[in-house]
């Protein structure tokens, strides 16, 4: 497969993952991830001058975390991503590709506070970049690593959901 086709395949996978995450289809999202998948949400704090890791774990951790969501009380206001893939760098020798995407996540209020007044209102929830590494060369590109690098650091109520 030419590099161009591989790149298209990877872009499609990133966009498909965005849709699955938007729709809370956790199992479908994780099906796009390699069994060694590592996920982290990070941000740099200029207040404490520190690279922070807000959430991290491997595929198995994410499986148990998402499967337990129904046991938790959560804000179910949908989160929708606007993702743009900026760069895809293929490394044929290592069978990997590194990608950088920019994203903005919008939250449309449902049951977060007072649904009568607020439901239906959309706000920017957070912005940042996805820094992904894919395993390629064995058919469907699979996420090997996703680092969600947040620009937004005022996270208010936060969320139980992966970004």
């Amino acid at each position: 497969m030419s590099d161009q086709l591989v790149i298209e395949d990877i872009k499609n996978t990133i966009y498909r993952a965005s849709l699955y995450l938007d729709e809370c289809r956790w199992a479908d999202w994780l099906a796009l991830c390699h069994e060694d998948f590592y996920y982290a949400i990070r941000a740099f704090s200029p207040e404490i001058n520190y690279d922070m890791t807000y959430l991290d774990g491997h595929r198995a951790d994410l499986v148990s975390m998402t499967e337990m969501l129904p046991k938790h009380n959560s804000d179910h206001s949908p989160l929708a991503r606007h993702t743009v893939v900026y760069t895809v760098d293929v490394n044929d020798t290592q069978g990997t590709a590194s990608c950088v995407s920019s994203f903005a996540v919008y939250q449309t209020q449902l049951d977060g506070i007072n649904s009568h007044v607020l439901a239906g209102e959309s706000n920017i929830f957070l912005v940042g970049k996805y820094r992904d590494i894919f395993r390629i060369g064995t058919g469907q590109p699979l996420f090997l690593q996703r680092v969600v690098q947040l620009d937004t650091r005022r996270l208010d109520k936060g969320t139980h959901w992966p970004i």
Binding site: Y54, D156, P162
Partner: peptide, 17 residues
Amino acid sequence: WGPFGRNLHEDLLAVST
């Protein structure tokens, strides 16, 4: 206790409502 942690989101949701 992080912004994506299991408990903090629940606490903040409760006081908001």
